[in-house]
């Protein structure tokens, strides 16, 4: 994927610090991270447990704000944004896939996929149409009326992917999306992400698995809250 040089970076971190705890020994989950991801890139983030990968994803995903430094998403500075603006960015510009699926157990597949559209103020009929289209993309058209408890782990994660893409966001973040899946289902989800990347979306994927990381064009490795390696594969 090529990107025009004058388009703003999809993600731009500048000397970002995230300190947890204000007590005697605060933890610097991120300790001066600078990172730029261009539109259309497929980046894998790796690193040992506790190195700050999830923290990074939360900042990029507008779920949290940094202690210091600057975070821009799609050219918008979100380091100091209020909660409503962050919510709007999460809703319109970002799709998040979690390791733990995070589906709502009492809603059926259709309604789970629709969820972001509800908060985007989309009409019920349009929501249904777009949820069906997203379900088709992840091959779950025949499961729309099922609840998550009636699905396999792989199917759940595909629902989560459908939910992440239903609002047509430019940026899709996946924090160890294959962590709870067997290799076949994991491969399925990765294939989906690759398809989304091929369709022009920016993908940032956190993984422990070098084989998974190898599918990305660029791998960023964190250690103790710092970027220790940033290379194209």
């Amino acid at each position: 994927m090529t990107s025009s040089p004058d388009a703003p970076p999809a993600v731009d971190l500048h000397d970002v610090r995230k300190i947890y705890g204000t007590g005697p020994d605060p933890v610097a989950a991120l300790d001066g991270v600078s990172l730029r991801i261009d539109p259309g890139e497929f980046v894998a983030i790796t690193g040992t447990s506790g190195s700050g990968k999830s923290t990074l994803m939360h900042l990029v995903g507008c779920l949290d704000t940094p202690t210091s430094g600057r975070v821009s998403v799609a050219g918008e500075d979100v380091s100091t944004a209020g909660s409503d603006r962050l919510a709007r960015l999460r809703n319109r510009s970002i799709g998040f896939v979690f390791q733990a699926f995070n589906l709502l157990p009492r809603l059926d597949v259709q309604r789970n996929i629709e969820l972001p559209l509800v908060y985007a103020g989309v009409s019920a009929a349009e929501r249904r149409r777009r949820a069906a289209a997203a379900a088709a993309q992840v091959n779950l058209t025949d499961r729309l009326t099922h609840r998550p408890s009636q699905l396999s782990g792989g199917q759940c994660q595909r629902v989560a992917v459908a939910r992440a893409l239903v609002n047509d966001p430019a940026l899709i973040l996946a924090d160890e999306p294959t962590g709870n899946l067997d290799s076949a289902n994991g491969a399925d989800v990765l294939r989906l992400l690759a398809t989304l990347h091929a369709a022009g979306r920016t993908i940032v994927l956190v993984t422990h698995d070098p084989a998974v990381a190898a599918r990305a064009a660029r791998v960023v490795e964190l250690s103790d809250g710092r970027v220790i390696k940033d290379a194209a594969t």
Partner: peptide, 16 residues
């Protein structure tokens, strides 16, 4: 809490 967290993550505002 978790349900509300998911709703927030997909774009629910506090007022929602």
């Amino acid at each position: 809490v978790r349900e509300l967290g998911v709703r927030l993550a997909v774009g629910a505002r506090r007022r929602d």
